[in-house]
Design a protein around this nucleic acid. Structure first.
Lengths: 176, 176, 176, 176
DNA sequence: CATGAATGAGTGTTCATTCAT
DNA sequence: AATGAATGAACACTCATTCAT
């Protein structure tokens, strides 16, 4: 289904077969294929927004790095759960398409929150919040994608700590 | 066409209309829809590989930062040229699909090259080359995507310098 | 449909319109156009094989001629039923094509059976079984085609008796 | 081309490539694909009509059998030359189609001539000339097709003599 | 005369959606 | 509420034919 074939390639037939139901039942609960996807996306967006609110202030010291590291581990877990839907979002980036906007805003929340928490304690801005947030989130998301799809299972969260270091350094420079 | 609708959504009819030709002419030059796309992708991959080879050694000092900044500006220009194709790559991430592999290897080259040039002069590694490369490239790519599609024209390369600072700091910490 | 236009010329649209259904329904029951045709051909081949097994021994006497005459009448009726499909077979005689083989084997069975029953009681062979079978079957088939498509209805089976005489004579010479 | 792929399957592109010319040149000499085929068919029809006129009277004796045998050998040679076109005729048997009529008349001439020459000396008719002609010609044609396409080269005309015996017997009964 | 790139109507096939049971 | 057979608009691709050079 979605995880393996993407949004466009997932036929309603595949979906209902995987769910052990019928076409009729599917359209009883969803007006069309996209609406199922919107529902999944909303679920994902909710989790992501919650996640964004859970990042505490990140300062330049080791405590800030620890906070960031812990949060990245939680992000990775969430990504593992919603990865298929998130990847399907990326599929659908034509302007004006419903899912793109959905995805954009959810991830936008995270990016904004991320930068806000970090900026709170950072002395001098290095860039605009928008750019910094987008770049940062991209890095984190692609990292999650990389770990989720490419890496062998078992060493899944091994990369979290180094990534946290890179992000932390990117904002604050080397630790004192 | 591709730029506006993505790969799947771009009907041969659209492509042909945009190119002011006919279906027949299209199939005179490409065996099928995917082959057009492969041709575009190969073109993009070539430019990207060339680009990757053009990044000189990046050290911890201001010269390294300058090198990085200049290279990022060139990356941005290349991305501006091939953005539609690159975004279409992301669409097609089902396992075993031809384009994914193409895209994977081209971007893989860049990531490897990027990390290699930076590592050459960096004292202590902060993470594995693979992870660092993927994360770094993701950041840069998403940044380019952000700048290309969202930002208003005219201030296009305004974000290059701050991004370079973030990347440089991420690897080397604060400048001396 | 098939009867009037042949296999190649019968568009799925024609078939579907004649059957008062839709394209979707057609592809619900057949994987593609050829598969419908294979199904029809298998049906025809079954009837033809059955028919072949129903020819009793044919001897040189009047009893043999009667047996042959009765069997030819049954052959004619079967041909009347499957004529369109049989004619479509002939259309598709490129080497390696599925239908040709199907058709070949079904008619081959008949030819072999025909000659076998006649040979059982015939004193001296006049030719090889293969050639005799092919020639005999061709004659019978073209006769059926002729009667079915050209002759006016009503005197349809008038030709059976003379044809039986010719075939019988061809194998045994004049009746004693 | 025609010999290997049949009429429908032979694309103008194939024909042109095999003839080492261009599409433009093809349409300089023929108004359309069918017209090329009509030209080939006319050529074939001419040869067949000539052939039909060359069958001398066939009587019940050994001289009649010899005449028939010799003529069948010539028929086989002609069929070998025009086989592809003849087979393509069979492809195109929809009512009202130009080629079918062409083919019908050419072979009709042969059938009529065949029966006429044989009847001239035969004491009692066994069937109507039309039916006898069609059946006889079918047998001969299919025999030629069989020998031409299936049999191994070298023993090509081995079957002529036995076939002549069958045909002769079919009309006159056993030789005295 | 000759060419072959360009054309576009026509064809087989797919798949989201509906509705009678 | 649940089903799944039926639908048909939409799409990728073919190939006979034309015409500017």
């Amino acid at each position: 289904m979605l995880a393996q074939r993407g949004y466009q390639a997932a036929r309603v037939d595949d979906i209902v077969r995987a769910a052990h139901t019928s076409h009729g039942t599917f359209y009883l609960y969803f007006a069309n294929k996209e609406e199922l996807f919107v529902a999944l996306a909303l679920d994902c967006a909710r989790d992501m927004t919650t996640l964004a609110s859970e990042l505490g202030p990140v300062d330049a010291g080791p405590a800030g790095l620890d906070e960031l590291t812990a949060w990245l581990a939680r992000f990775l877990a969430t990504y593992r759960h919603h990865g298929a839907v998130i990847r399907a979002w990326a599929e659908d980036q034509g302007p004006g398409r419903g899912l793109a906007r959905l995805g954009g805003s959810a991830f936008g929340d995270i990016a904004a929150s991320l930068v806000a928490r970090i900026r709170e304690t950072r002395p001098a801005p290095v860039t605009t919040p928008d750019l910094a947030g987008a770049a940062l989130l991209a890095m984190v998301e692609r990292f999650a994608d990389f770990v989720t799809t490419r890496a062998s299972p078992g060493d899944g969260d091994d990369g979290v700590a180094p990534l946290a270091v890179m992000v932390h350094r990117g904002f604050f420079g080397a630790p004192a």
